[in-house]
Computed example of a mutant assay.
Amino acid sequence: MQPILSCRDVRVSFNGFQALQGVDLEVKPQEVRFLIGPNGAGKTTLLDVICGKTKASDGDVLYRQVENIRKLQEHEIVRLGITRKFQAPSIFANLTVWENLELSLKQERGLWSVMRAKMTGEDKEKMEAMLSRIGLMDQRHQLAGMLAHGQKQWLEIGMQLMQDPEILLLDEPIAGMSGTERHKTGELIHEISTACSVLIVEHDMEFVRNFSKQVTVMHEGKVLCEGTMSEIQQNEQVAEVYLGRRESAC
């Protein structure tokens, strides 16, 4: 199966500091892939490059093997089918859950287009299906700012999915969640993967072990190794540079 996303020799430098030192990474269609590694390994920087927030100094980021998105702007990358959820929820607190999803509907974004836009029956069905998917149907008329932390995270994931992405980037999606919320988020991620690929930065090794399919370990701006979590745990290099520091968690 051909990868939907390919990072080839991606490099990023910040004032002489090499944040990424030639990263190669492939994500296949409908894959759930976790990025793990110590702080400063370059995981979030790699997501920043993929979504266009940070520009790589060298290398290629290929979407569907034909479109090099390395130099595109963030909004152009979203239109292609790659969306990003950052660690802190970014929602409209003074709008209802329903209104947040409505604003996120995939549509033309010009001023005139937005002013003329009318919700169709198909749009409403799509929003209702999303509310059910993220478990917020009963809260659809509630102000988003009044939601619990985990619910806010699910709402933003739903907002990203309203764009019909083919790749969803998640940065520590379970931070601050309870055990029940973490489990529900893991199940949601796997449900999402039936329609799009999911690339996740995560530090919680129990969550990675329970919900990962493929894992990529990064260290000092490079890919150290990749494989299943079982294979990763048996890798001596990983044990030395990362897992050994948190052996009890793995």
Rank of each mutant, 00 (worst) to 15 (best):
P3M: 07
L5Y: 04
L5R: 09
R8G: 00
V10T: 02
V10S: 09
V12G: 04
S13M: 08
N15A: 14
Q18F: 01
D24L: 05
L25M: 09
L25F: 15
V27Y: 10
K28T: 06
P29C: 08
Q30I: 00
V32S: 07
F34Y: 12
L35E: 02
I36E: 04
N39G: 10
G42K: 01
L46S: 05
L47I: 11
K53M: 13
K53D: 06
T54R: 15
D58I: 00
G59V: 06
G59M: 03
V61D: 09
L62G: 13
L62M: 15
R64Y: 04
Q65V: 06
V66D: 13
N68D: 15
R70L: 14
K71M: 09
V78G: 02
R79N: 14
R79V: 03
G81M: 09
T83M: 01
T83R: 02
K85Y: 00
F86T: 13
N94G: 11
L95M: 14
T96F: 02
V97A: 01
V97F: 01
E99G: 00
E99Y: 00
N100R: 05
E102M: 13
L103A: 14
S104N: 07
L111M: 12
L111R: 13
W112K: 15
V114M: 12
V114W: 08
R116T: 10
A117P: 00
T120W: 01
E122G: 02
M130L: 03
M130I: 11
L131R: 06
S132R: 15
I134K: 05
G135H: 02
L136A: 03
M137I: 09
D138N: 12
D138G: 01
Q139L: 08
Q142P: 01
Q142I: 07
L143G: 00
G145R: 08
M146E: 10
G150L: 08
G150Q: 02
K152A: 12
L161R: 10
D164F: 01
D164I: 01
L169C: 12
L169Y: 04
I174E: 00
G176E: 04
S178V: 02
S178N: 06
T180R: 07
E181S: 02
H183M: 03
K184C: 00
T185S: 01
E187R: 12
E187Q: 14
I189P: 03
I189R: 05
H190T: 11
T194K: 12
C196N: 01
E202M: 02
H203R: 03
E206F: 00
V208C: 08
N210T: 10
N210R: 12
K213R: 15
Q214S: 10
Q214L: 03
V217C: 10
M218P: 03
M218H: 04
G221I: 06
K222A: 07
V223T: 14
C225E: 08
I232W: 05
I232M: 11
Q234M: 09
E236H: 11
V238C: 08
Y242N: 09
L243S: 08
R246V: 15
S248N: 12
